[in-house]
Design a protein around this nucleic acid. Structure first.
Length: 675
DNA sequence: ATCCAACTAATTTTT
DNA sequence: TTAGTTGGAT
């Protein structure tokens, strides 16, 4: 294998790729080619250093990033890329759990609860005893999640809990974990939490995984939380062979447990840590980079970094003041249309970035009125769709009869006349017998407590499901298709959708899901794996939204991109518009109150560094909020930008309020004269 | 079981 | 303002 591509790397990049003697931290500024460095390094490890592909593991946060890396690696490495373990933290954790089911008290086919399932379970546990309010339970859910990310066990938390809600959450935590175990289930956090706890106090298990991971690479390291970092540390403890890539200036997820200080902590934990900074940016004009540098210089830094670019200077950053939110949207759209003609850009070269999703609403209305195609970030993801959750719940239940969450979702889809009363009875019986709801349904004893009609429905449901379960083992796809046909799911969608067209789309979503499952099952057939467990593995992966083939260009490709600043991380666009660059929005008012302006500044930094050619920042004087008009002030971040990089015509222009005030003053002055 | 009215809360979001 | 949720009524 030839490594001509190494020559096209700049010197720091080459150093990052070629240093393989010990732990290394790559500080990769925005647009400095970090993904390229990671993939080249893997190729180098395999091609030049004799590492077996399957002894290398690369971890990312999202499936999208993992896919991208896999794709790029197969370009660099060809067939050998297949052996390299590229996965998300959660998938890696899943593998650890799956490898030693017994150690984790799990049975094959165990379920993975998503946030919704987990909230449902917590509600069940908390509200049963006391009529607690939903938002209290939600707070508990967050607390428990935080604790898991900090690797605290229920016993640790009992001592720690300081206020009443924490005490309650701590009590819930313990019962919650027990329930999950009873359901043969884990939640998302458990996928990392439980493996780490086990690796921590089980030397044999640790050694086993250390010998599986000879070299570890971690992407977006600034986003790791405590448990993820601990996993990294454990896996690399013996060999100390790791490369982590990150950028403290792009840490924008502290609010969900990320610990950017993990970057600095590496220097303490790996004494021989080698450091490389990637400061050459290949994305943006020097004007944009200077502004970004200057802005972020206001944040404290462990590692200093100066991005530079060898491109032509480029246009100044345009800062626009508009009278209100409608005017803001009109300006942006008009400006995009104008620029599209003048610089012969496609609509997809334009991105509008904002702090909160609500800001996209007006923009969407205007774009729709103008019939301009756009793509909006967020929205209900594929797996949040009801039809997908329904089918997934059926699959989960088939594979794991103890999954009560799935049972409850599915029991009346379609309506089977099994009401709340009946379910109460089943649940009570199941609790008594210490078994899952579905198992309870096949016990004779239950039917002494149910009336004829209810008993018949429940019986029918459970017998039918058990038959499908048997069928699933011999012919998974046929079983699933038959199941959906039996319940008349297509018709059910038709009845439960607003329009026939919507129903058709939802049914198409289901077909898409089935297609992906089928494909993944086939892929598994090629490799040597237990067919019996294949469907279980496929469903487990599906819950993690892994392996799903992107449903690409079902519509137009040339669309204006509408994104939150968070969603924009990692992307780039020729022309970027940042809207609502105002106090209380871009430094968000909650962050102002809590005093963490730094993360908001990083958010602005991420936004600015998305732009390749031009950047326009817009703020308004007034905007409607919750139905009321409020006055706005330009963001403090605008004042932090260097004057020679910006074009700000309306800077210090008197605001209407100031004018009005002045008017009132003269008026009162006149009054005083008369008095 | 289903539907409607009233009430509430309103950053960011992946797995 | 609006969307989503909850509780009550039919």
């Amino acid at each position: 294998m030839q490594y001509t591509s190494l020559n096209s790397l700049n010197p720091p990049q080459q150093r990052a790729v070629k240093y393989i003697d010990g732990p290394m931290l790559v500080l990769a500024g925005a647009g400095s080619g970090k993904t390229r460095v990671i993939t080249e390094k893997i190729a180098y490890l395999v091609g030049q250093c004799g590492y077996a592909p399957n002894k290398i593991v690369a971890v990312t946060f999202t499936n999208k990033a993992a896919q991208e890396m896999r794709h790029r690696l197969s370009n660099a490495l060809g067939k050998q890329a297949r052996g390299v373990g590229i996965s998300t933290f959660h998938t890696l954790g899943l593998q650890i759990l799956r490898r030693d089911l017994a150690m984790f008290d799990l049975n094959s086919g165990f379920s993975i609860f998503d946030a919704e399932d987990s909230l449902g379970l917590l509600k069940e546990l908390a509200m049963h005893e006391r009529g607690d309010e939903v938002d209290i339970v939600k707070t508990c859910q967050y607390l428990i999640s935080d604790w898991k990310n900090e690797l605290l066990r229920p016993t640790d938390v009992h001592k720690l809990a300081s206020n009443p809600i924490e005490v309650q959450a701590a009590a819930l935590f313990e019962r919650y974990q027990r329930s999950l175990a009873a359901y043969n289930a884990v939640d998302f956090d458990d996928l990392i939490y439980r493996p780490v706890l086990a690796l921590r106090d089980n030397p044999e298990l640790l050694e086993k995984w250390q010998s599986r991971v000879h070299y570890l690479l971690v992407d977006e390291y600034q986003d790791t939380n405590t448990s993820q970092y601990e996993l990294v540390q454990l896996l690399t403890a013996s060999r100390q062979m790791l490369t982590v890539v990150g950028d403290d200036d792009q840490s924008i997820y502290a609010w969900r447990g990320a610990r950017p200080e993990n970057l600095g902590k590496l220097q303490e934990d790996y004494r021989k840590l080698e450091l490389v900074k990637l400061e050459q940016n290949y994305r943006s004009t020097p004007t944009i980079l200077n502004a970004a540098n200057q802005l972020i210089a206001n944040n404290p830094h462990v590692f200093e970094k100066q991005l530079w670019s060898s491109l032509a200077p480029g246009e100044p950053i345009r800062i626009e003041c508009r009278t209100d939110d409608q005017d803001e949207v009109d300006y942006i759209v008009d400006s995009i249309l104008d620029r599209r003609l003048r610089s012969r850009a496609d609509l997809s070269d334009f991105a509008v970035l904002y702090r909160g999703n609500f800001q996209a609403r007006l923009l969407e209305m205007r774009l729709q009125a103008d019939q301009l195609p756009y793509r909006i970030s967020g929205g209900t993801s594929f797996f949040a769709r009801n039809e997908i959750k329904d089918v997934m719940a059926y699959l989960r239940l088939l594979v794991n009869p103890d999954d009560d969450s799935a049972f409850l979702r599915v029991v009346n889809v379609p309506r089977r006349g099994i009401g709340a009363q009946t379910l109460e009875t089943v649940a009570a019986y199941a609790k008594n017998r210490d078994c899952g709801l579905l198992s309870a349904c096949s016990e004779m004893g239950l039917y002494t407590q149910l009336s004829g009609k209810a008993a018949q429905s429940v019986r029918g449901f459970s017998d039918w499901l058990l038959a499908k379960q048997r069928y699933l083992a011999e012919s998974p796809m046929a079983a699933v298709r038959e199941l959906l046909a039996d319940i008349g799911y297509e018709d059910w969608l038709l009845q439960n959708s607003s329009t026939p067209a919507a129903a058709e789309k939802r049914w198409a979503n289901v077909q898409f899901l089935l297609g992906n499952i089928e494909k993944d099952l086939k892929d598994r057939d090629d490799e040597v794996e237990d067919t019996d467990q294949a469907i279980e593995a496929v469903i487990g992966k599906l819950v993690l939204r892994d392996m799903l083939e992107r449903q690409e260009n079902d519509e137009e490709m040339d669309q204006i991109q509408l994104l939150t600043l968070h969603a924009a991380k990692g992307l780039e666009f020729r022309h970027v518009y940042m809207m609502g660059v105002e106090e209380r929005i871009l430094p968000h008012h909650n962050s102002i109150d809590e005093g963490n302006i730094d993360e908001e500044r990083r958010l602005a930094y991420v936004g600015i560094t998305r732009a390749q050619e031009t950047l326009t920042m817009v703020y308004t004087r007034k905007r409607k909020q919750h139905g009321h008009v409020i006055n706005c002030e330009p963001s403090r971040f605008l004042d932090e930008l260097p004057a020679d990089c910006i074009h700000w015509p309306q800077r210090n222009a008197a605001s209407p309020e100031a004018n009005q005030q002045r008017g009132e003053q003269t008026l009162s002055g006149l009054k005083a004269l008369f008095d």
